[in-house]
Design a protein around this nucleic acid. Structure first.
Length: 542
RNA sequence: GGGCCUGUAGCUUAGUCAGGUAGAGCGACGGGCUUUUAACCCGUCGGCCGCGGGUUCGAAUCCCGUCAGGCCCGCCA
């Protein structure tokens, strides 16, 4: 059984109506780690729909959170905004400097980072039923009841946090962070509580009052979270393992929820995604791949598949190199397997094999996106990567695919006349990938300029005659792939050299490896002089 | 210190909740496609299921212990 189906099943024991929530603080660039948060929820939503549960998916944007520090991508002038709520400070411009102009047009720091992420979510087929802006929710009184309960029972909440998390809170800790006259929630000390008003004194010694029902401040995180569950009726929420640890915010949250008067949501802790060879994703350290950036390389269903195929508690190493090509090809293979239908010998399969099939069905189902760029194409990512490097003209690539029968005549005609075909889009992505720093070196064609050591160690003196004859023909022949190919084959045949061996030998000479794409096609792309020179060196070496 | 997650074939892993002969994919190797797809098709090899105990007719699966890796307990998903 797929992990999401298992979650849906346990939710069904709890009731028929559910609200699944995700929440993210828009403190910096979003990365694919954040995508796991959202996709985990979205996949569970699909699983719930599959068993006819009524389900809403809400996305909390924690824009009421304060700016914690001046991140590396921000200009030092952000210092003045530390402690200010993210919905209330200007967005950075391209140099990381506060952009007052855009701010005056209503674009906050939070919006600035959130917008591209929301766009990516649309591309990736995530169906969010409601985006809840936390700042606005405080303003409109959504948190009013919970805030009052929390303040009235401050001692009980303090007891829970101290006991469960094992840390000691300051003597003047209070479950409300008021905003001071400058707009900061840092360094403000509570001096009194008279429902619903908190009295405070800020770090400069100014006194003030804050009405907790009007959003003049916010609840501290460990109380804010259960309060959200309460007023929105959240029944399920996946969260990162930092919140899931013993003493973490879920364990305090589920007790605080009871004080607020609700049943805590069904929890699901998920592992982090790290970037291969670099470390955990983190917006503040700049280790990140943005969701949009990833979507420029591969179709959206591949990103869904990355999350769907790995169980939440499993750590994912995201690799934009060969592993991503393999992931994409794996998805495509499974898609094709699914299309060919349930195995005919179903009854003979072991329970385990049947389960594997069902999991496959689920993985592909959870990964599908309406505007699929993959479908049942036989053209693998691996193969496309190769053709895209070999041919700069799209038309040549379609011709090649037609010749090798990976596409039919009809598809070929469509590709020729319409560059918005699925395969055209995939090719564009592939070209972007190849031109980016993320493309794996293993897949890059390495045309040799001189005889490599690899070639030297694979040449056999008995082949000298063959190479010499080939070189002679190639010096004068028509320079197209068909002619070149005929010479390679005919000369090998007449000498009773196995074609396989002949090709491998030439692959070694040109690419420093024993395999590759259509050899003659590569040679045609190269100029005659280069090829002759390489053959010369090989003959000389022998 | 407290806690969480992970450990299954060379690699990525399914199966662990509901115990019943260990399943895949990739890679490797061999063969086929009589002019060679980084394609496709067929086949082969490869697992003391981290280790040690226990419960059981039966354990990858449950229990206890242990080792290794990763991580959390300061508002980074």
């Amino acid at each position: 059984m797929h992990w999401a189906d298992a979650v849906a099943k346990s939710l069904s024991y709890r009731g028929d109506k559910h609200v699944i929530a995700s929440g993210i603080t828009p403190s910096g660039e979003f990365h694919i780690g954040h995508l796991r948060e959202i996709l985990t929820s979205d996949i569970i939503k699909r699983a719930c729909q599959n068993i006819d549960l009524e389900i809403e998916f809400v996305f909390f944007v924690d824009d009421a959170d304060p700016l914690r520090k001046v991140y590396s991508f921000l200009d030092q002038s952000y210092e003045q905004y530390i402690g200010h709520q993210l919905a209330n400070i200007p967005p950075p411009d391209t140099n990381g400097v506060p952009d007052q102009e855009r701010f005056s047009q209503g674009i906050s720091y939070a919006n600035h980072f959130l917008e591209p992420f929301i766009k990516a979510l649309e591309l990736i087929g995530v169906e969010i039923d409601e985006i809840i802006y936390n700042y606005a929710s405080y303003q409109s009184g959504k948190f009013a009841d919970c805030s009052r309960i929390a303040c009235n029972r401050a001692d009980d909440i303090r007891e829970i946090i101290e006991r469960v998390s094992g840390r000691e809170l300051d003597a003047d800790w209070f479950p409300w962070n008021p905003i001071d006259h400058k707009g900061s929630i840092d360094g403000v000390r509570i001096t009194g509580w008279d429902d619903p008003v908190v009295s405070w004194i800020d770090s400069d010694g100014n006194n003030g009052q804050s009405d907790v029902t009007k959003g003049e401040g916010k609840l501290p995180w460990r109380v804010d979270w259960p309060a959200k569950w309460n007023w929105r009726g959240v029944t399920m929420e996946p969260f990162g393992k930092d919140h899931g640890a013993a003493g973490g915010s879920y364990s305090t949250g589920k007790e605080i929820a009871q004080i607020l008067g609700n049943i805590p949501p069904h929890p699901l802790t998920y592992e982090w995604i790290s970037l291969k060879g670099v470390g955990a994703m983190s917006s503040s350290t700049g280790v990140s791949i943005g969701p949009l950036e990833a979507l420029e390389l591969v179709p959206p269903e591949i990103m869904r598949y990355l999350i769907a195929r790995n169980k939440p508690q499993r750590h994912i190493e995201f690799n934009t190199g060969s592993a991503l090509i393999e992931l994409a090809d794996e998805y495509q293979r499974k898609y094709a397997e699914l299309e060919s239908g349930k195995p005919k010998n179903w009854e003979e399969l072991s329970r385990r094999q049947q389960m594997a099939w069902e999991t496959l069905v689920a993985q592909v189902g959870f990964s599908r996106v309406d505007e699929s760029a993959i479908e049942s194409s036989r053209v693998s990512f691996r193969h496309l990567a190769l053709l895209a490097q070999l041919r700069s003209e799209d038309a040549d690539i379609w011709a090649s695919l037609l010749r090798s029968q990976l596409i039919g005549q009809k598809e070929y005609d469509e590709l020729k006349s319409d560059n918005e075909q699925k395969l055209s889009r995939r090719l564009r992505m592939m070209r972007t990938w190849i031109n980016s720093q993320h493309f794996p070196e293993d897949f890059r064609l390495r045309i040799q300029s001189e005889l490599s050591d690899g070639a030297k160690s694979h040449l056999d003196s008995r082949d000298c005659d063959y190479l010499r004859a080939l070189q002679t023909e190639l010096q004068t022949c028509l320079w197209d792939s068909k002619t070149i190919n005929n010479h390679i084959c005919d000369l090998a045949k007449s000498r009773e050299i196995k074609l396989r061996d002949a090709f491998q030998m030439i692959y070694w000479i040109i690419l420093d490896q024993n395999f590759g794409p259509k050899l003659a096609a590569i040679m045609e792309e190269l100029d005659r002089v280069t090829v002759i020179k390489l053959l010369d060196e090989a003959i000389e070496y022998l």
